[in-house]
Amino acid sequence: MSIETPLRHEAGASVLQQPLLEVRDLVVRYGRRRKAAAAPPAVDSVSFSIQPGETVGLVGESGSGKSTIGKAILGLQKVSGGSVGFQGEDITHANAGKRRAIGSELRAVFQDPNSSLNPRKTIGASLAEPLRVRGISGAEARTKAEDMLERVGLPRDAVDRYPSQFSGGQRQRISVARALICEPKLVVCDEAVSALDLSTQAQVLNLLADLRDEHGLSYLFIAHDISVVQFLAKRVVVLYRGQVMESGLAAAVTESPKHPFTQALVAASPVPRPAEQAERRAVRESLGVRTAAAVAATPGGCPFRQRCPLATELCAAERPALRRVGASEVACHYA
């Protein structure tokens, strides 16, 4: 599929923008040889692109392949098919040297603030590592680390401390500082706020939004919580069992979801207003989506068909292609 920029094929347009990140027909299979061929792929022909300065959200349940896509982009997961392009360059199978070359522009913030910083290194050493890899001197790296800590709202002297001396929220800010220290173009945020409490989650989300506005960053924001995603992302891609179910503007996808799975996902996300939540519950129960526990994964056709109230024989026979429905792209025969 792809949400292609309409400008892309316009000849000679000065406004022509090359997507910052372009994922095309990405396939990732776990396991080796026969085992990999037998199981349905963890990521199955996923395509999307991110423009400079744009934030795209990747939403799905556990096992939807959203984190695997992030890892494939970062080179942490071997890709079985398709391609990942970054700034017009194919980085699908980039080696360590190539990764080092683009490592300052393509960065990551991970979920668990407890294990994303080496407990045996000072904050300064962890922050300086990406700079040192690029041959920046120790003293300069330290100053940069101090500046960056200040930017994420921590005192400069935090450079000499160890991760265990900080709370979860502070550690996640340090991870953000580590990602942004070499002035990247794109940051992959893999469940970057999921482990945090409400008030700290809001602090980190605000920080990400501020830094984006200041530096014109792009984010690939991966999360299971569609409400968190829509705070940062203008565009979202909804995944189910490794396939794109729906993609489009965040407002359109969350307010008038077209795919039965997106409808179920949006309706299941509870809101803290009892009267409205009661309405949403009634809507959810009327959707008639079957429970995930009742069905096993079977290859072929639409991955959601066994839970889907609209499913017919066609859905088992033929995998629905993404097509435009309203303002979004939807992979459903009946949307």
Binding site: L76, I102, G103, S116, E129, V133, R178
Partner: peptide, 21 residues
């Protein structure tokens, strides 16, 4: 550990990761 992933994203080679992390 995630900090090993983070180091890989930095472009550290396998040898450097083994020694440092």
């Amino acid at each position: 550990q995630l900090y090993v992933d983070a180091a890989k994203v930095d472009g550290l080679g396998p040898f450097a990761i083994s020694v440092r992390h």
